[in-house]
Amino acid sequence: MKRKLMCLTLVAIGLASCNGGYKKGDNGLLYNIYTDKSGPKIKEGDFVLANLVIKNDADSVLLSTYDQGRPSPMILPKPQFKGDIFDGVKLLTEGDSASIKLSADTIFKRQPKPPGFKGKFIIYDVKIIKVIPKGTMTDAVFQSTITKYMTDLTTAEKTLEPVKIKNYIADKKLNVTKTDSGLYYVINKPGAGPLTQNGDTVVVNYTGSLLNGKVFDTSVKEEAAKAKLPGLEQRPYAPMRVAVGAKRVIPGMDQSFLLVNKGTKYTIIVPSSLAYGATGGGPIPGYAATRFDLEVIDIIHPKGGTAAPATAAKK
């Protein structure tokens, strides 16, 4: 009897090793819960706020909320098929962290495969930040509860923004100058000639990033490749031409042009009030300070009093 039990134990260990510590769920779903908190499991219709990294089994990251600087909110929907990612999330509770592994073939039977995708699995690394159970709440009360939670979260982000900027400047040892508007700047390499004026057109290279270091936009192809930005081959990379004072870029960048001359290389730390505001945009969260590294390639003075149009829209 003992020998049989030992054999069964060895078989179980062997199976666990083959799956890399993952347990098996419905339809081939594999999951590994690293932090397992007590509490009710997430149900369909519950509100979930989670950080998420999606990657293939070669560790090539397809999406990361950490890079975006904000966790992702959702109302947990019904599974699209048995054993999908939403079934995986239902194994978790608030505070849990886990990896959920799905067969790429199963997923891409139902949706297009991303260009250049390689691998046999899609892996979701999930950290559940907050759960608001729907329970017996009416839809109106449920939505009101979610709205209050998200509003409180946004208020906290607004309060923390100046602290994050201060800590970032200290950590990076930046010798900044602060303008009356709240813009921070550092001249890394002085230029020559007169300062830029409103109505001039500046030709600049730029790289924009969040304070966590994630690059979200750049005019420099090498920087885009380094940051693994999408659409690398589709976009023509070139210095941006923008009319100063025409409000065609974020206010913080527009203001910075008046502080520099041709040839200047400089860095600006832009509070959200001079950038993307309370709502953010694209990969930029609300109340997020941003960093731009810029180089003024040329300054073109208007002819006949008319400034040239910008070739890049407001980011």
Rank of each mutant, 00 (worst) to 15 (best):
C7F: 11
C7T: 14
C7S: 13
L10M: 14
L15G: 05
C18R: 08
L29H: 00
Y31S: 03
I33P: 06
K37L: 08
E44T: 14
E44V: 15
D46P: 09
F47G: 12
L49W: 09
V53S: 01
K55I: 01
D59C: 12
D59F: 13
L63E: 09
T65D: 04
G69Q: 08
G69M: 07
P77K: 05
K78H: 06
P79C: 02
D84T: 02
D87G: 05
L91W: 01
L92P: 07
K101Q: 10
D105F: 08
D105M: 07
T106K: 10
I107Y: 06
K113L: 03
K118M: 15
K120Q: 08
I123F: 05
K127G: 05
V141W: 03
Q143A: 07
Q143C: 01
T147P: 00
Y149L: 11
M150L: 14
A156N: 04
K158D: 00
V163F: 07
V163G: 01
I165A: 00
K166R: 11
Y168H: 13
L174Q: 02
K178I: 11
K178C: 07
S181P: 04
S181M: 02
V186D: 03
K189W: 06
V202P: 06
V203A: 08
Y206V: 01
S209C: 11
L210H: 14
N212D: 14
G213R: 04
V215W: 03
S219T: 13
E222P: 02
A225M: 11
K226E: 10
K228Y: 04
L232H: 00
P236Y: 12
P236E: 15
V249S: 10
V249F: 15
V249G: 10
I250Y: 12
F257W: 13
L258V: 10
V260G: 04
K265L: 09
K265H: 13
I269T: 09
I269N: 06
S273W: 04
A275W: 00
P283H: 05
P283G: 02
G286N: 03
G286R: 02
Y287H: 13
A288T: 11
A289V: 07
R291L: 13
E295F: 13
V296Y: 10
I300H: 15
K303W: 10
G304P: 06
T306K: 14
A307D: 03
A307G: 11
P309L: 12
T311P: 05
T311K: 05
